[in-house]
Amino acid sequence: MRNNKLKTAAAIFLLGLLAVPLYFTSTFVLHMFTLVFFYIALTAAWNIPAFGGKFSLGHAAFFGLGGYTAAILYVKLGISPFIGVVAGTFVAMLGGVILSFPLVRLKGPFFTLASIAFAEVLRMVAVDWRSLTNGSVGINIPFKPSWLNLTFTSGAPFYYMALGLALLVIGLAWWIRSSSLGYHLRAAAADEDAARALGINTAKAHFMGLMWSSGLTGMIAVFYVFYNYVLEPGTAFSMDLFSLQPAMNGIIGGMGTVWGPVIGAIIMTPLGEFLRFYLGTIQQGLNFVVYGLMLIAVVNFVPGGIVSLIEPWFKKKKSGDSSAADN
């Protein structure tokens, strides 16, 4: 019964979201919503390796690989971004294959450090490989409005695409978490050796998790880049925007859960924008100070993230229904 009520509420909420572009013509509001959706998708993708306890601070690598692939194909060769999405996803996954070497060999902070280095190296390559990337000048997506070019005169199409991406990645994350891969990753996160003794190829599970995560991040990046018209190494491979931000969203919302990234992205995206624009002008890096303080607060007082505060209430609503295994 209550489950049905919950479903109805979700359906109404979703319909409300679909109607937003019809009622809010302010580009600022639409932009903020779109950005939140992009970050929900990016955070949910970042979060998949975190099911297995792997904490990446290098997802900007996959973002940059995906974004650059599609942009280069489009601007240099005139290939439609819809093919670019496939290529970008694939190239980002190749990046995932490379990062999987430290992923399965290094534990805890050592993997995290390797992931940072990986993204930084790629950023430097993007700066130096001028013939391909235009170096630090970056690539501009020419304004030729058309569906095929993924370029539009209004913000609405991207609003809907970003919403679609967010729903898609949440759905996939939920599906992965409740499938064997999700169970294997969670077991590996809790106790790698016990998991191995129980027949789980934990290296393979971590690898598969990173494949999903890197591919999805690359795919999201293609849409994001066409939404922004421009990409250069400093933003496409930005530690701040695409490595730290998803990780922050994940921790604040609740790392390794399905809904944590959603909550985290909803709270942190507007806040992050605000901090970057207002504090960033006062003193460069001041936004990181605020992030640091928030991080300390969450890790100390709600280690499970905000989702752990909401979850008990949610579970009570669902009780009577014996689906203990899917959350």
């Binding site: 969670r186 809790a190 106790d191 050796d193 203990a324 295994a325």
Partner: peptide
């Protein structure tokens, strides 16, 4: 004992 941090059934 090394139970995973999930329900008994899980």
């Amino acid at each position: 004992v090394r139970p995973f941090d999930m329900t008994v059934l899980e």
